[in-house]
């Protein structure tokens, strides 16, 4: 107790603030110089994809990690966004550069219209709905007569993001230009998304989402408009997933029904969230990079067995995840809490 009150009243210095974000800045700077110091080929593509997956991981952690409403509809949101981008290109000839945001917004609107009832009741009904919907869409895409319009098994093909700029370059530089520009764009979006998610998760709004996860009835009965908090959280979270879908589609044509498969677009981020510590943002972000990079390395060793390994890891994590993990993480973050609380107390 003594120790804590000391923490509460210890004023954070400017130096300690800088020290706190120093690791973050260092890691980000090293990461961003990788292509410049010779990262090429397969691995630069892997990192681009992991950058995009960070958006899905953050989306899950921001909403499900705090409110404990498991949003299994992520593959739906990601997939609808990706297909919107592809279809806009195919039928209206919109270059992908211009359709990333509109596609993400369209998918966000779809997701929240369909899943809004799931915000009112906690239970199996909407989890099942959210799992089945993407499977139905995947079926539609690959079956007659829809497959004729939606690309079928082969997917929808178009020129990738920034291709019009790459075309102007000498043939030997085109591939690297595309890879590097995709890497930097995805990294920039990932970094901005990370900072925003971190800010939200540790704001009053973020703590309201946590209060809903810990005791929703208590939250509602003591003044928190739980429906509104969940709604805003869900929309923010869906937008992140939708942005991931649109970015992925823009950078990786052709887009196929694989994007609706939960094993592809839900399991990896979900593993990262659980492994990293739900609701902490920092942990899942780190776990996102570790698990997905290891996943790629395993491809060489295990081949298609890696997906089985991944699923087993998820099962083990779910079984092992004790209540204590959250508490453990709280202890780790006690400093953060205390410094913030001090600021509040000192501010008046």
């Amino acid at each position: 107790m003594v120790e804590v009150s000391k923490l509460v009243f210890a004023k954070p210095s400017k130096v300690s603030k800088v020290r706190k974000i120093l690791p973050f800045l260092t890691v980000v700077s090293i990461y961003l110089t990788l292509p410049a110091i010779g990262l090429r080929g397969f691995w630069i593509d892997v990192l681009t994809r992991v950058n995009i997956f960070l958006l899905i991981t953050l989306s899950l952690d921001l909403y499900s990690g705090t409110t404990f409403y498991l949003n299994l509809g992520v593959p739906f949101t990601v997939g609808v966004s990706a297909y919107t981008l592809a279809l806009l290109n195919r039928y209206l000839g919109v270059p992908v550069e211009y359709s990333i945001l509109p596609s993400a917004i369209t998918s966000t609107i779809f997701s929240f219209t369909i899943f809004i009832p799931s915000l009112r009741v906690r239970g199996a009904y909407f989890s099942i709905l959210s799992l089945l919907l993407p499977i139905i869409l995947a079926g539609l895409v690959t079956s007659q007569p829809f497959s004729l319009y939606l690309g079928g098994e082969g997917g929808i093909s178009y020129f990738p993001l920034f291709f019009s700029y790459a075309r102007a370059l000498p043939a030997g530089e085109r591939v690297f230009f595309l890879q590097a520009s995709h890497f930097y764009l995805s990294a920039a979006v990932a970094i901005v998304a990370y900072i925003i998610c971190y800010k939200i998760a540790y704001s009053d709004f973020g703590f309201m989402m946590r209060s809903i996860g810990q005791d929703e009835l208590l939250a509602e009965a003591t003044g928190i408009n739980t429906f509104r908090v969940k709604l805003i959280g869900f929309i923010a979270s869906s937008f992140l997933s939708a942005l991931a879908g649109a970015l992925y589609a823009a950078m990786r044509p052709p887009i196929t029904a694989d994007i609706f498969v939960p094993a592809n677009t839900l399991v990896p981020p979900l593993t990262a969230v659980i492994l990293g510590g739900m609701g902490t943002i920092v942990g899942p972000a780190i776990a996102n990079y570790l698990t997905l990079i290891i996943y790629e390395i395993l491809w060489g060793v295990l081949g298609s067995w890696r997906i089985i390994l991944y699923m087993c890891l998820l099962i083990v994590l779910v079984l092992l995840r004790p209540q204590g993990l959250i508490y453990y993480l709280y202890l780790k973050m006690k400093q953060v809490f205390s410094v913030r609380i001090f600021k509040h107390l000192g501010g008046v």
């Binding site: 009053d204 703590f207 309201m208 946590r210 209060s211 810990q214 005791d215 208590l218 939250a219 003591t222 003044g223 928190i224 408009n225 959250i326 508490y327 709280y330 809490f337 609380i341 509040h344």
Partner: peptide
């Protein structure tokens, strides 16, 4: 006793104030 088990005392109280 009904409190948010994983939120510090400060937030247990402030969130209600912030909502109102």
């Amino acid at each position: 006793m009904r409190v948010y088990p994983y939120l510090p005392v400060y937030y247990n109280i402030e969130l209600s104030a912030r909502s109102v």
